[in-house]
Amino acid sequence: MCRMSGEVPPPMSGTCGCCLNGDMYIFGGCDDNGQTNQLYCVNLLDGIYTWRKVNHKSGSPPSPRDKLSCWVFNGRLIYFGGYGHKQLDDINNNRSFLMDEVSWVDDIYWGWNNEVHMFDPTSASWSEPHTSGCDPDPRAAHASVTLCHKGYVCGGRIRETRTSDIYCLDLESWTWYEIVPASNVPMGRSWHTLTAISDSGLFLFGGLSIDCKPMSDGWVFDVGTKKWREFEHPYMNKPRLWHTACQGKDSDVIVFGGSCNYILRVDTGHCNDAHVFQTQPYPLFRICEDYIAKNVKNCKMLEKQLPFVPPKLLPAVQKII
């Protein structure tokens, strides 16, 4: 644990975080005053960990929102969707903003959007790319991932329903298209994660179901064949929602934190454990590392033989131990 200084962001939920060139950016979220559209940045490599508020030099930032997602591509941060508020005069396209009919005050309306906004850290500029094609419905609490030059969106909440549909945005041509799966699809959900595990594979885990129940199922989607495959794993009794996930070594997926309850109804069930999902067979080198590191302390003979492990293998084993 390290002490962070500078322009530290206020306590928030529903923010959107991403990393680019060693810098971690967080945008949006909900603080004590409601949704925000502030952007903060901290360098994770310099050992100083000083936050700074990022002020743009040109363009207009997105309206205040939370539960959005982000793609990182070609040195830029590309944000999609979310739930937030707009003034009535700014709602000029019913296709991009779906009003929440029970949430409005005077001329300020809350709702879901499917807008695409881009931030360029080099020029500190915001822009709103013009997209074409079949764009997804406005939504929030969805999951997204970048794969090559494409950004994928899966599921999320659209008004009172939750979906498991998949859309793709070509980040070079800015063209949307829907991917219609060729097999059984997961149940609709929100607050789940989607993680790239190969050049064509995406791993989906957990979330909140249509009937507001925490989920623990895992699925793998092949973007080439357009097929879903349910993934067996040892954590079926440990549901998660609003967690984080990232790709680890050898296509592992590491899931951390979140909640095992519907957090809007019960303020308990917060989690701080990590689960590792093995999505691909491990190479022989990895198997050797794991076996030696796991058993060296319990086997005196193996412990004595450790210094004779091949030089290429020894540093990796010592690091794991």
Rank of each mutant, 00 (worst) to 15 (best):
R3Y: 11
L208C: 04
W126D: 01
P281C: 07
C148P: 02
A143W: 03
I166Q: 12
P311V: 06
N295G: 14
L68W: 01
G207D: 04
P307M: 00
E115N: 10
G14T: 07
C246G: 05
L147V: 08
M301G: 11
Y291P: 04
S123R: 09
D165C: 10
P307S: 00
K249S: 12
R139C: 08
I254H: 09
C18P: 03
V309N: 02
W176A: 01
Y167P: 03
P315F: 00
T279Q: 04
R162T: 13
T15H: 12
K57R: 12
G59L: 07
D31P: 04
P10W: 03
Y167D: 11
F119P: 08
T15V: 10
C154D: 11
E172Q: 08
L306S: 03
G218R: 08
P214I: 08
M215I: 05
V102F: 11
G257Y: 05
G59D: 06
R240F: 03
S259D: 11
K304Y: 06
S123I: 13
F277A: 02
I287C: 00
R3Q: 15
S132M: 12
Y177F: 15
T244H: 01
S190C: 14
D32V: 15
D217Q: 05
R265F: 09
G224H: 11
Q278M: 09
F119C: 05
V8Y: 01
V180N: 15
V102K: 10
Q38S: 07
M215W: 08
K300M: 13
P11N: 02
C19K: 11
Q280Y: 00
S173C: 14
S259P: 05
L20M: 15
Y152P: 02
P310W: 01
F203H: 14
T195R: 10
M118F: 06
L314F: 01
K86R: 14
Y83M: 02
S190N: 07
D290E: 15
D23N: 12
K297A: 07
R76H: 06
V8D: 01
